[in-house]
Design a binder for these strands. Structure first.
Lengths: 337, 337
DNA sequence: GTGAAAGCGCTAACAC
DNA sequence: GTGTTAGCGCTTTCAC
């Protein structure tokens, strides 16, 4: 390696040690913790460090400690989706908060949904990160692959694989509440636009809808699958074409709900007079449409914060209580129902 | 995966070498490139690798190569801002594209604007990344600090520090074009809402506006500073209060422009009949408002893609042509002017 | 309280 | 073609 002497390579422990007149071991002690070292020695080392602008080499350190100090929030969605659904920033923010002050770095990794689980497992095992929080996974494949690995991983949302840590919301109950609200407001011919049915949350919300409908003696069979994206709310047109007498709509997230509402209105129905609509997630976008969207809260940041706690336990060698279910989602009544 | 040896530590080169009956060096050769190794040896090594589920240890590798294989897109803005302005996803996406297939990982790092430049320099020197693309910096402090470091870094937007690589748009010219369009459409009493004036792009757009106004013999002095955020478009109210006869408005980005348009309309003016508005960035949000927003394009993805190319040159030890100015911004005429 | 010394897993000369 | 041999910069027993 043609590393010319005199060329500025970063200062090492060795350099600091020489200048401070101590051994590498001592410098190392000062850098990590500083106890068990004489005050004046510490002082001398500190000075040398400043003088040199010394900075520990991460690679060398993590080679021996087997820790990188980085955890990832992994979102198996395309980046444009991650950036267009306000759920994700909230989720990311929660993880960030949990690690504030703890000098671990939190990176956001977006994976294409097409990516094989093995590609993600490989990423996790590649040594870039110490552990991960997985948000918005589709199907059990990834979790199953991870279950056999020894990677510290926590899912947000039911991983559908035994032994894998996760935190979740009671989506079934939340959907029931939303649907009952529609019914209370007088809706009878109610449909739901679901999320992608390869996601547990989407299926749970569908189930909750169906339970509430059945419980009220109404027909629970009308639903169409969406994709949690704004555009996929467009299936509302289809719904209305097939069921012109529709008078209630539970939409599995707000992004779709706003689109659906626009379509319903464009098709000449009034909201909420003709069609009542309840969304899910309590996204900001729902506050600014006309009428404002009635919705269910979905504390994404709390989820990831909780997941981060579990991950820290895992990282510390512990076995966190699993799963961790969050307090129920709340109904936010605004104008659309 | 037959992980024997009680304690499951990950398999190493050594393990592979032993099983394949070759030396560590040979395994290393196979792992990196594979040339200069006999076909059958390669084969044997490959088998051993699969059998063991071997995966190179990143820390060990980067300790010797002095490369991490990670580059960062650094955005010195709060995460909520990064997630609310569509400019950033585009910028990030461009960087991602540039590195497709090149097995370097691109991480998105958001730094609080309050962060001292030294904190960011420290991050860059910490060894987590090989280099960085800086997007949306405020003021020259960071670039100046970086200029004295030997970190490979490319800025998007004028760093205002000599010797620092960057790519930029001709914001002055773009603002001129936007302003002239307003004038052509009959506006005479025109104001501008600028971006944060600690950013070079904001000042350049202000300058372009003033030049175009002066050139047309109009009063160039009416402007108010915004923050490139949606809320900061609210300064339009102030502007209209102070200048009730305003008939044209150049807004330095679309987020602010849409807010400004709403306010203008709420205050009883028609757009574009009473007040003509031109925005900047060509964000999707501008297409969905009423009337659709006339705006200037801002190819964020191209910028970062270009920046990524420069960064690769830097990383390869080259000296890229600097700065790199992108093709001009284009006027997109829609309904608001 | 401090130093000496042994690696962590890998790459890259340099021999053969 | 392949093996041998030095380290990369750090942490961490284990003596002293």
């Amino acid at each position: 390696m043609a590393r010319i002497e005199g060329a500025h390579s970063a200062p090492t422990l060795e350099d600091v040690a020489r200048i401070a007149g101590v051994s590498r071991a001592t410098v190392s002690r000062v850098v990590n913790g500083g106890t068990l070292v004489a005050a004046k020695t510490t002082e001398a080392v500190r000075e040398a460090i400043n003088e040199l602008g010394y900075h520990p080499n991460k690679a060398a350190r993590s080679l021996v400690t087997r820790r990188t100090g980085v955890i990832a929030v992994i979102v198996p969605e395309t980046d444009d989706r991650v950036f267009s659904d306000p759920y994700f920033p909230q989720a990311y923010h929660g993880a960030l908060q949990a690690f504030i002050g703890s000098d671990v770095q939190v990176v956001l990794a977006m994976a294409e949904p097409g990516d094989s689980p093995s590609r993600m497992v490989r990423y996790l095992e590649s040594g870039h990160v110490d552990g991960a929080i997985i948000v918005s996974h589709h199907g059990p494949a990834l979790a199953q692959a991870l279950a056999h690995s020894w990677q510290p991983v926590v899912f947000v949302g039911d991983p559908e694989a035994p032994g894998v840590c996760y935190v979740d919301l009671d989506n079934v109950e939340a959907a029931r509440v939303a649907t009952r609200h529609l019914i209370e407001r007088g809706a009878r011919r109610i449909a739901t636009i679901t999320g992608p049915l390869d996601m547990a949350s989407a299926r749970a919300r569908l189930l909750g809808f169906q339970e509430a409908m059945t419980e009220a003696g109404l027909d629970p069979s009308t639903y169409v699958e969406g994709g949690y994206t704004s555009e996929s709310g467009g299936v509302a047109a289809q719904l209305l074409a097939d069921h012109p007498d529709l008078d209630g709509l539970f939409v599995a997230n707000d992004l779709m709900a706003v689109t659906a509402m626009n379509i319903v209105q464009a098709l000449g129905r009034r909201v909420p007079e003709d069609v009542r609509i309840v969304g899910f997630d309590d996204a900001a976008i729902g506050q600014h449409c006309t009428p404002p969207l009635t919705t269910m809260t979905n504390p994404a940041a709390e989820h990831t914060r909780e997941a981060a706690e579990m991950l820290m336990e895992l990282l510390a060698g512990g076995t966190p209580a699993n799963p961790r279910m969050l307090a129920h989602s709340r109904l936010v009544v605004r104008g659309s129902a």
